[in-house]
Design a protein around this nucleic acid. Structure first.
Length: 593
RNA sequence: GGGGUCGUAGUUCAGUUGGUGAGAACGCUGGCCUGUCACGCCAGAGGUCGCGAGUUCGAGUCUCGUCGGCCCCGCCA
């Protein structure tokens, strides 16, 4: 760089800098070589500034500029001047001015990048991930990471101001039963023993409450060795929080202010608080899911009672065997073609439905449907009234066990909304889901498992049901859902050893195992554990939604592929025998047949 | 573990029922060009059609296997 020192970035060169000498450093975004006159769009993290190389300003710099290529790293010293009349570029912020180069230094050359980074053009993700350092230079990716930084910054500002301590918890911890598969780390000094990377700092943050920290948060990496999705990575980041002496509403209100603060600070968006609230039961009944997208209607309506007395045997059978019949009124969608309906039927079947019954409402209010003949006039009227059906509407029916109907109609609801463009893109619709079941029955294992985690407190009024009817016990858990995606979840925790032991018992975790795995928590609960509760947010998902992206990979600097590999660093990788031996690991592994 | 989809030049893609030397755009290289900003004009280079078998007189195209990207189900307290 010689004696050159950077004085400005490529965003701050404006008319205020006219006539002053500046030094810029950055990458050659594009070169337009006119022979006698050369233009270079110089790009840095902040923006783009046009640099002009003219022989009358500096002959040497002009000559050297012929050799510039895309992504060369250069330093440019020169004077800021107004562009000639009519030559302004209104598309960029610095478009009124340019820098006339008096000295050019090539700080580094570059091979031709493997893909263009100037446009929004879609490049396959494997190439982008292999050359992630180039991908991240693209302004859109840079902005995603900038937003992520700003969101973290807002979280820290807000929580510090509210009296929270940011406290780190261990990355090398112990494997716990329940929950996701752990990533294991062998211990060299303890042959045959393994650490686990944390799935969340759950136990540590509860211990911190018992330790009297009162208000804790951490922006922390978590690990789960499960298959990937667009919104799931094996390592992800969460905003983890815990507070003592609180109830549900304390946490909910705090989080609403936090979200409002984050959105205002980073996007200048006003989100309206308080957020809507739905109980788990209501969410399932009306939307078929515990993470409903509230940006559109198409709600599920129960018609089991009418279905029970109609002439359609499939409906009767479902109604009399404990199942449900529900319907969606797709307003003004009766123009769906036979082919559309076939596709939707296949869609429903792929989710476990046996079929997909539909009814088109004709101009005169009569039914056009393969199942019309099984319904008396009175039954048709009753259904139409309940669904608020009018000519031009089409009704879809789901009849099966509850879980299937919820899933099928819940997904159908989203599919219909997508097809018809009913989902407003620019809205942020939050909703709290409360009163989750504490437990759910695992058919495979033949026992109850915790829906959230085994430290979630049951609702007081349901505690005695723990013995008689565990499946109906509601918990003091709450999830925050944004635009149909779960972005956070938490609960009031159990702070009494007796209750915790009882829950372990219902979960069929033997005393010895509870003692072995969670003994330190059970013991800590006996030394003055305050009532406490908390919540954790998926930072990646939140930023993804705020950035309007479809995958969290776009807001993570170095994400992994669906095979859980890093294409750039090529991880995971084989290790030497010596390394394995040092860890007392046998290298003769084989994939189980 | 399962279903779907994709893989052809550096990139994004086209390539018909299997049939002449595998194409386009952008990018790249060289030349010309003093007001461009997706600069323009001229010329040129660039391919293991992901990989491996098979069918066939003949395979980018068909079959099987395999590797990889993406989407989904299962899984994800």
């Amino acid at each position: 760089m010689g004696e050159l020192r950077r004085t400005h970035d490529c965003y701050s060169i404006t008319e205020e800098s006219l006539e002053s000498e500046v030094t810029l450093m950055g990458w050659v975004h594009r070169r337009r070589d006119h022979g006698g006159l050369i233009f270079v769009d110089l790009r840095d993290r902040a923006g783009i500034t046009q640099v002009v190389f003219a022989p009358e300003v500096n002959k040497e710099a002009h000559e050297k500029a012929h050799s510039l290529r895309s992504e060369y790293v250069i330093a440019v010293r020169g004077k800021v001047r107004r562009r000639p009349e009519g030559m302004e570029n209104p598309k960029i912020k610095t478009g009124m001015v340019e820098v006339a180069c008096e000295e050019l230094r090539i700080l580094n050359t570059s091979k031709t990048p493997p893909f263009p980074l100037d446009e929004e053009k879609d490049v396959s993700e494997n190439v982008r991930l292999k050359y992630r350092y180039i991908d991240l230079r693209r302004p859109v990716m840079l902005e995603n990471l900038r937003l992520r930084h700003n969101v973290c910054q807002a979280m820290r500002t807000f929580l510090s101001q509210k009296g929270f301590f940011e406290i780190e918890t261990p990355m090398l911890t112990r494997s716990t039963p329940e929950g996701a598969r752990d990533y294991l780390v062998p211990s060299r000094v303890n042959p045959g023993k393994f650490y686990a990377l944390p799935q969340s700092p759950q136990l540590y943050k509860q211990i911190l409450m018992i330790a009297g920290m009162e208000k804790y948060f951490q922006i922390v990496r978590c690990f789960r060795d499960e298959d990937l999705r667009a919104d799931r990575q094996p390592e992800f980041t969460q905003l983890d929080m815990e507070m003592s002496f609180v109830k549900e509403d304390d946490i909910i209100e705090l989080i609403e202010s936090l979200m409002a603060f984050i959105f205002k600070q980073t996007l200048n968006v006003d989100v309206s608080i308080p957020f809507k609230r739905l109980t788990y039961k209501e969410a399932m009944e009306r939307f078929g899911t515990d993470r409903p997208d509230m940006r559109f209607g198409l709600e599920l309506v129960d018609i089991t009672d009418i279905a029970a007395r109609c002439g359609l045997k499939v409906f009767n059978a479902v109604a009399s065997s404990g199942g449900v019949v529900k319907a969606i009124n797709a307003k003004e969608m009766a123009d769906l073609s036979r082919k559309d309906l076939d596709v939707l039927t296949e869609f429903a079947q792929s989710l476990g439905a046996k079929g997909l019954a539909w009814v088109k409402i004709k101009e005169d209010g009569s039914w056009q449907s393969p199942i019309a003949k099984f319904f008396k006039d009175e039954e048709q009227r009753a259904i139409m009234e309940r669904l608020d059906a009018a000519p031009g509407d089409i009704l879809f029916f789901g009849a099966d066990q509850k879980a299937t109907v919820f899933k099928v109609l819940g997904e159908l609801r989203i599919e219909l909304a997508k097809r018809r463009g009913l989902i407003p893109e620019d809205r942020f619709d939050f909703v709290w889901i409360t009163e989750f079941p504490l437990l759910e029955f695992d058919e495979d294992e033949g026992r109850f498992k915790a829906l959230h985690h085994p430290f979630t407190a049951p609702m007081k009024e349901d505690i005695e049901l723990l013995d008689s009817d565990p499946g109906s016990v509601r918990s003091r858990a709450y999830d925050l859902v944004l635009n149909g995606i779960e972005i956070g979840g938490g609960s009031i925790r159990i702070h009494q050893q007796g209750v915790q032991k009882k829950v372990f018992k219902v979960l069929n975790i033997p005393d010895e195992e509870a003692e072995e795995k969670f003994g330190f928590l059970l013991e800590a609960l006996t030394y003055g554990a305050p009532p406490h509760g908390g919540i954790a947010f998926g930072l990646d998902r939140l930023v993804m939604l705020m950035a309007g992206r479809d995958t969290i990979r776009d807001v993570i600097a170095f994400p992994k592929t669906q095979k859980a590999q890093c294409l750039m660093a090529r991880a995971p990788a084989e290790v030497s025998m010596a390394q394995l031996a040092e860890l007392y690991l046998r290298p003769d592994w084989k994939k189980a047949e």
